[in-house]
Design a protein around this nucleic acid. Structure first.
Lengths: 234, 234
DNA sequence: AAGCTGAGCTGATTTATATCACCAAAAGGA
DNA sequence: TCCTTTTGGTGATATAAATCAGCTCAGCTT
């Protein structure tokens, strides 16, 4: 499944400096520490990158492609938290607590990942307060987003949740009213905490009401205002 | 409503050192910075301490009493995230991001709070990496707990959620099988994301099934194993 | 080509949960 | 003290959403 390769343009962390915002503030010496034992791996669409419950040994930097982050919950139900694109850091809150992975990560497209040893990462965090403070902002930001998601999932009904999910994809993630939907109906259901059947039904409702169109896996938002309205009313 | 007083045993931060775990690692000079402009306030049960949506100007250290942390959601529904006791830090993820308060905090008992200026707090975070790293652990821990809560609230049905709520109170918060329940039925409903009527009904179910007893607001867990079982089955 | 599989889709049915209407008891106010 | 308000409590009803069964269609495999 996993096969190591060197990814173009990512021979070492010095080159990452200009791309990955989290590493921009590091000195060459600090980057050198991260670069030790660093390696990158290419995954094919559909492959799992991190498995919930395993040990956290590396911080992952997403170099190329799109991944989904999800919690494996009751039975075989998943809760899709969000999607990530370059240059996001992956590994989750367990990196700084119990060194366990608390969410699974899978590739939605072909993906390149850079693995940084957690010990080296922590060493730099102990040397450079600004780097640590950036990380706090990173984790805090996630929390704020989780708060909103919790309200959406626990206090809105299905149409409101679906509106939230679609608005997240178009406004936050893809930043476009038309985008290739890399998610299956089941994954949309995981994103909006409903059954697959219900997700299908509500997408059809939205199509009938001319809020969206779906051709193949190309999704277009036709009426953002009305979606916002549905989101607001719950 | 809010009246300033000096709280016994909290004349300045030097004294907090031995009590508040987050401040233990700070040097006298660093504590002196936190102590500048520091003040403490006593609240009566029921009073609001932080209001969601306002500006974050201080980090709050809970010195005495019990508070509830909750998000004000759709309409007038609240989502009760958790309770806090001394010596917890309050203020939320907005302290490190947009300087907004993202959750409300209310006093369940009479409460004493120490207010530390956010600017001073940040100054110390820039000086002492270990302090910052502790904060990362703090915020990360919250995230891990939120993950579990999201699964509970979105994938379990009412009995499972109520079991989770009661187990949280007895095992995590009060660390006792018998405790004074400071929450109203409405607040228990907010904790478990259901209507007040349903919360009442399910508590009665649990009483009938001899899983708990409720005398006044004294709650006893009689059958932890069965509650765990209900929690697990969802 | 035939057969299989999995994804998307839909109507009918069941189930979980919210809502409503109402009552009793407790708590606070005049 | 009585009156009002709030909180806890309960059965009946309505509604949101999951489940079930079955169907089509596209992509594979043999």
């Amino acid at each position: 499944m996993i096969y190591k390769t060197q990814v173009d343009g990512c021979e070492d962390c010095q080159e990452c400096m200009n791309k990955a915002p989290y590493f921009k503030i590091l000195s060459p010496a600090e980057l050198e520490i991260l670069n030790r034992d660093r390696y990158s791996v290419r995954y094919k669409a559909g492959e799992m990158i991190l498995k919930q419950g395993t040990s956290a040994t590396h911080v992952l930097s997403l170099i190329d492609g799109i991944v989904k982050i999800y919690i494996e919950g009751m039975g075989d139900r998943n809760l899709l938290l969000n999607l990530q694109k370059p240059w996001s850091l992956l590994g989750g809150p367990g990196l700084h607590t119990d060194r366990k992975i608390h969410y699974s990560v899978s590739a939605l497209t072909d993906v390149s990942i850079c693995f940084i040893a957690l010990d080296n990462f922590n060493k730099v965090m102990g040397m450079n307060c600004r780097f640590g403070n950036q990380l706090i902002r990173h984790v805090s930001n996630h929390s704020v987003i989780l708060f909103d998601k919790m309200i959406s999932l626990t206090q809105k009904q299905m149409h409101g949740r679906m509106a939230d999910g679609l608005l997240y994809l178009s406004k936050v993630f893809f930043k476009s009213d038309t985008f290739k939907l890399y998610l299956s109906r089941q994954e949309i259901a995981d994103l909006t905490a409903m059954s697959k059947d219900s997700a299908i039904r509500i997408l059809k409702d939205f199509e009938r009401d001319r809020l969206i169109t779906l051709k193949g896996n190309e999704l277009s938002i036709l009426n953002t205002d009305q979606l916002l309205n549905i989101s607001l009313k719950g």
